[in-house]
Each structure stands twice: as C-alpha cells, then as structure tokens.
Design a protein around this nucleic acid. Sequence first.
DNA 1: GTACATGCAAATGCTTTGCATGTTT
DNA 2: AAACATGCAAAGCATTTGCATGTAC
Lengths: 144, 144
Amino acid sequence: MQSIHELYALLKQKGFRFTAPKRELLDIFLANQDRMLSVSDVFHLLPENSGIDNATVYRNMQKFSELGVLESMVDDRGVSRYTLQEKEHHHYLICTQCGRIIRFPCTTHYWNSFAEGADFTETMHKLEVYGICASCKKAALEHS
Amino acid sequence: MQSIHELYALLKQKGFRFTAPKRELLDIFLANQDRMLSVSDVFHLLPENSGIDNATVYRNMQKFSELGVLESMVDDRGVSRYTLQEKEHHHYLICTQCGRIIRFPCTTHYWNSFAEGADFTETMHKLEVYGICASCKKAALEHS
DNA sequence: GTACATGCAAATGCTTTGCATGTTT
DNA sequence: AAACATGCAAAGCATTTGCATGTAC
C-alpha cells in the first residue's frame, strides 16, 4: 500500500469515492509512516482551513481500517491510533516519548501449546513493546 | 495477592483506609479471577443498593492498580479492564465471546535482537491472544 | 440522477473532577 | 481531630449519529 494510485484503485473497486478529504488524509498517513496517529493528531496535521470536519476524519479512519488500508490499535489511554497497514503481519516497538514506531516481524507463536492445552482457538493476537527510541535517548542525554 | 487480609495489610501499609466500598470491590475481583472486569462490569456486580458511586469505583480501580493489586488493560473499544495481579508476569488468552481469560507465562523475548538493532530500550511489553475459549466453542456446537 | 460523502450539531459513553460531607485511624 | 474516602453533580474527551446538503460517478 504505497501510492495514492493504488489506494485510489482499491477504493474504487470497493465502491467508494475518492474525495478531497480522503486524499488529504491518505497524504498524511503516507507522510507519517513511522507514527501511530490518533484522530486528533490527524486533525492537527491538516492544513488550517481544510474545512474537513472531525466526523469526516473519524468516518474515514474507520473505513480505511475496514478496507485494510490502515491498521488500528487502541493506546493506553483508550484512544484509537492508525498507521498504514503493511503487507505482512508485524508487531511494534513503540516509543512512549515521541510515539515513533518500529516494525518487527512476527516470528513466534510460542503460546500455541498453551492455547491447545486449554482448547482455545486463536483468531488474532497483539504484541506491543514499549520503551524509549534511539533519538529520544539521545535527546535526553543532550539535555542533561 | 490472594486474601482480603493480605490486601488489608497492603493498603494499611501504604496509608490508605480499608472502607466498605474497597472491601466490596475486592470481593468482586477475588470472585472473578478469570475475567477482566470493566468499571461497568464491576458496577453491575455490586448488590442493587450498595450505594457505591461510579466515581468511587473508578477511583479505587486506579488506586488498586497503582498499588499493584490490580493489573489493567484497555480493551479494543478503549474501555479499561482490571483483574487481580499475579506475582509473575503473565500474558493472556482472551475469549472474545465471553471475556474469560487464561493466563500463560511470559517465556520469550524474541524481539530483543530487533530492539537492540534499533537501539531501543524496552520498558514494558504487552501480548494478548484473542480467540474462542473451550466452553464457548462447546456452547456454539450445542446451539447448532 | 443516484448513491455515497461531508459538514454541522447534537447526543452518547467512559472517565475525571470539585466540593461538601462522612469515616477510618 | 486530621487525613483520607465517598456521594453527588457537573464537566471533559473521544467517538458516534441524524440529517440536510454536496459531490463523485
């Protein structure tokens, strides 16, 4: 999911329209692939007088998630955050200072034996690693 | 963290008081160790005329979390949920049907190499496995 | 022209807060 | 008595929804 053109095709195929607000929102996500953006973040990244309403942002974030264009998560304060979805299933290192994310592949399902033991059928899993990223550590050093 | 007495001691030690609402709340968590309860869940589990206010439940859930009596998470709808904290760090199989949780030990940190590679310092991680538990699968079969 | 989208405003739901009163210690 | 807790009511946010209007197709 890299270019506006691919996204355009995908939307069209699903019967949705490619409007100015959608275009602006996608631009923001394309330009911020190393962040998980909340609706409020997105709203503040929009140009001053975009005229785009909060509700429009919410509706489109949801639509994009359903389409598989965006991936969503809920942060520790209960706020939904979104980022462009990669082809492969990834997990994230998440900087609690600046919000930057670093993707890493999903290579282990070590819990499978426990799930089987409990006769539990997995449908999905979520792994998030929180901490401080390199640039925030550097910044912290410089300020001390 | 098993008995009311231990909890009583812990609260006292931290300078808090052991009140009737706290006692009722803890009883609920002791009786529901296989669930992640939201404030709303807890509220509904309280006796009809407990007289305990919503705000009191919120304040105590937070307090208990800070004390390490409860462990908290935010569900996929952004709602905070709590369960008694175990001695050791665990992860959860979470039934999306009934909300039942099954704990399993944390034995892998396979992402360490990625974190080191990115000069990322982990402070915490979260792993949740969603699916359908044995009893919900059984119930589904019986209804079909 | 029709179906989908948007803006606007009101409503919802979870959570927090201020404040006067009540209770534990 | 002092410090912490609680109930009550109001406020705060994120998010959703209804509806009339606008726009892509």
